[in-house]
Design a protein around this nucleic acid. Structure first.
Lengths: 354, 354
DNA sequence: TTGAAAGCGCTAACAG
DNA sequence: CTGTTAGCGCTTTCAA
């Protein structure tokens, strides 16, 4: 995994390489040479000796209305010509396209997000949908253009829609799918709860939560904090401390100084925050975990490399995404059977920091 | 920045929230109540008291062919009705859409990539294009479907296209833009050179390069290694050592043991690799930078938090992306003036590890 | 069991 | 200066 790894090439304008193959003036000959480009359904029909209507029907799942050999001819013809239906034509006729737009959250954009989208891409492709991605934070005006222009079958978001996004999607009448904030909160709460329970099991009685202090909007931190607090109360502990950590050493040291360490056990928003606190502890010559205990969240590669290794929680994004995909397909009316039960997605990763 | 931060919510199928606003049967009344959804150019024309052709012309940059007040009526009408042209209709007519597909490299997917795409989104939107993202590396069959169906104005890639991708794009006759591998190599070479020069300026005479050993394809490492080697030779140093580091402690320790430290100065593929080596050095009780010098690449947040702070190189992705966007627009025929000179994109970040 | 015809929204050529 | 017309590729009645 290379969650940390950044993009790392650069170029100048003149360095780019542009190519476009000559587009043949007429689309299809008699299968003359090599595979053809951009065959239309009319081409397929002619090649198969049937009408365009027949091609359309057969290729859209109504093959059983036709004689088997007719259907076979159509399939063969489409295959030979490398036919892919034009999204434009179909969209125009049907009123909405087969594209599904997924909004990429700007907040969390780790290395594993692509695994999620890859899983979704494949699952959706099986049902004839094509997944495209959009940066969520980008101006909602361009979202409006995208939705109005592309007429996607659905817009899906990993994080709850902002009010602006919601307004645009409603106005354009597009199927909009996001996790309702309530549940999102509950699940993030579960993360906080797991962190707190783990700390308490290890004997800690003074808990704290360290937020990531970031310029970007953080939709998750407060729910996690609540999860920690809740468990602390259930165990009759003192009210938890709450602090903010930006990803620089000064900020981490300041946060640590405010924490009335030694002896406190911190649930960190994520592994970055946890690592920052560990560095701060080292500067202050606190011993981990004796003087300061820390549990992270995410199981980044670097958290495993740290000395001592960070105790953290792993989130199985692929397992989680399968559930998300299922709900998306269900909303689209593509009868995906529901998975029997939600799979476990949270795993405690042992380290030496608690 | 939260390059490290992973996605961190989870959900089950039943948790998702689905909504679709009722779509009005008829698109436009006499501007009766609130803004209308999905007005067509015919609606705009009727509302403005002109023909559809006039609307089309005015809205596509030929307003000067008409009387000023006619154009004004059209603009006002479109505005009032919230008109966004249908991509499907336009695509059908024109043969290609206004979408530009950007392929997301699977290899490097750091937190800053979204800044790049945001910059591109805005720049393209100014010229009437809409950027959508695709995970590269996902089955090329779905790329084929996407290209054949969406008929994008261009497909742009940050990393050179694979042969499969190139074949699909050629076959569909779509404008394909990627950095040619030669230049890509040269620029990565510049990164290696800068690392080596920096180490040498600090007095080191025995250099090494540490690759990231990763399951994913690494298109950049070898060029960087070459850059380091080249500078080492120019300065008459011994041949450089080369090693591989996976992102776990065992691997890093093994690599370090093979390096004939103490005394060696390592140019790391990226900050992750550098951090792994620093952890290994700590385990082996080597003192940094006396026994082991390390320079990274990327300037991750955690590299700044490390004690001692990592000396590294920052890559200004937004400056770099501007050049990329310019070349894209140029290829699209949207006459973007070339930036005068390529901006500096590589910056040395001082730390205490060399 | 299959085909003919209409029309989705748009733009380009041409006519007035 | 502006409008009429045709047709991009597809799917969906409806008729044969």
């Amino acid at each position: 995994m290379t969650a940390l790894s950044r993009v790392n090439a650069h170029w100048t304008t003149s360095d780019y390489h542009v190519s476009r193959r000559g587009i043949p003036a007429v689309s299809v000959k008699w299968d003359g040479e090599g595979s053809e480009v951009n065959a239309t359904s009319a081409d397929v029909a002619r090649h198969a000796g049937v009408s365009r209507a027949t091609v359309s029907q057969v290729l859209n799942g109504y093959a059983d209305r036709f004689a088997p050999e007719t259907a076979a001819k159509v399939y063969a013809s489409a295959e030979e010509l490398g036919y892919e239906p034009s999204a434009a034509g179909r969209t125009l006729r049907r009123g909405s396209s087969d594209f599904v737009v997924a909004l990429l959250p700007h907040t969390t954009f780790g290395g594993h997000l692509q695994d999620l989208f890859e899983q979704m891409s494949v699952a959706l492709a099986d049902h004839g949908y094509t997944l495209v991605l959009r940066i969520a934070g980008a101006a909602t005006a361009t979202l409006d253009r995208l939705v109005a222009g592309m007429k996607p079958a659905a817009v899906w978001s990993f994080a709850p829609f902002t009010d602006d996004e919601r307004a645009v999607l409603d106005r354009r009448g597009v199927l909009a799918i996001d996790p309702p904030s309530v549940t999102q909160v509950d699940h993030n709460r579960a993360i906080g709860q797991l962190q707190a329970r783990t700390l308490i099991e290890h004997g800690y009685r003074r808990l704290a939560f360290a937020h990531l202090q970031d310029e970007r909007h953080d939709p998750f931190g407060f729910a996690r904090e609540d999860g920690v607090r809740e468990v602390a109360r259930q165990h009759g502990l003192d009210e938890i401390d709450v602090t903010n950590v930006a990803l620089d050493l000064d900020s981490a040291v300041r946060a640590l100084d405010g924490l009335s360490a030694p002896g406190v056990a911190v649930a960190a928003y994520n592994d970055d925050v946890a690592m920052a606190l560990l560095s701060a502890a080292r500067l202050r010559e606190l011993e981990v975990p004796r003087d300061l205990a820390v549990i992270g969240m995410d199981r980044t590669d670097l958290s495993r490399i740290a000395v001592p290794r960070l105790t953290t929680i792993e989130y199985d994004i692929v397992a989680a995404s399968e559930a998300g995909t299922a709900s998306l397909l269900q909303a689209l009316g593509a009868g995906a059977p529901q998975p029997a039960a939600a799979p476990a997605v949270l795993h405690l990763i042992e380290g030496e920091t608690i």
